[in-house]
């Protein structure tokens, strides 16, 4: 693992009216690192991720992508910087085929006169190549997402997030809705991404997930940084303690 820091959040605070959702939170992640973020409901995980992806604007603090300070005004901005988010509710359109979902909003087009038309052939080809690169098996790139299993949908969501050379992928509870036998496939996929040099932030309640893929784990508690450790230097019990706000 190189020590190149791809994303750093410094002293992030976020207020909603009188409520303090985040208070002076720091986070950093290096290239090809898998960072686990844990915390109880309402600890600020989701808010922090929404700030990182540009969906929320932080009230205080700064974001640095590859060492450069940036101003995010929408998810588009963070996408352009190589950060992608895989949402808990998957954010896929079930009525559309796999390929359409992967390229939704960024469809390959060909120019005919003054008009841009969808390039169906190119989209299909790019979809097949990308699925093969991530070792995702589906019957066909034209299959509708609503026909897929939960694990396959999660795989499509991850494929969607990484289709445009993402450097950082944030996954919100990537295994929460999955059958046991499908969890392993998604975790393998995370390790695949790591091997391709992608940094992954995994939000999860499941210690099995955290301890099988993460390099480092950080805990939020009531909107603040509570604890952080390399995975090899901590234990499940300790991390569970952090979630509940207990430290030795």
């Amino acid at each position: 693992m190189s020590e190149e820091i791809v994303l750093e959040a410094k002293s992030i605070s976020k207020f909603f009216g009188t409520i303090t959702a985040l208070n002076d939170v720091n986070l950093k992640i290096t290239k090809g690192e898998v960072l686990g973020v844990v915390g109880d409901n309402g600890a600020g995980k989701s808010t922090l991720m929404k700030v990182l992806s540009g969906l929320y604007k932080q009230s205080e603090g700064s974001l640095f992508f590859s060492g450069k300070k940036v101003n995010l005004n929408s998810p588009r901005d963070s996408q352009n910087l190589g950060l992608e988010m895989v949402y808990q509710d998957l954010a896929l359109a079930g009525n559309l085929p796999i390929g359409d979902n992967i390229f939704l909003g960024r469809e390959p087009v060909k120019k005919v006169g003054p008009f841009n038309f969808l390039d169906h052939k190119k989209r299909k080809q790019l979809t097949e190549e990308h699925l093969a690169k991530l070792k995702i098996n589906v019957k066909s790139a034209d299959q509708k997402v609503e026909e897929l299993s939960g694990g396959q949908r999660q795989a499509v969501a991850i494929a969607r997030a990484t289709a445009f050379n993402a450097k950082i992928v944030i996954m919100d509870e990537p295994t929460a809705a999955l059958a046991v036998k499908e969890v392993g496939k998604v975790l393998d996929l995370i390790l695949n991404l790591k091997n391709l040099g992608v940094s992954v932030i995994v939000i999860s309640h499941r210690m099995d997930d955290i301890f099988s893929v993460c390099d480092r784990v950080m805990a939020l508690f009531q909107g603040t940084n509570f604890a952080e450790s390399l995975l090899k230097d901590t234990s499940r019990d300790e991390v569970i303690g952090w979630i509940m706000g207990k430290k030795d």
Binding site: M85, A91, L96, N116
Partner: peptide
């Protein structure tokens, strides 16, 4: 042609399928 072969046409279907997904895709 508009609905099947343009991006806006595709987005119209996507919004009907899952408006949250469309929004998350930057539409």
């Amino acid at each position: 042609v508009f609905l099947n072969h343009t991006r806006i046409g595709k987005w119209i279907y996507a919004i009907g399928g899952n408006p949250g997904a469309a929004r998350a895709a930057g539409i």
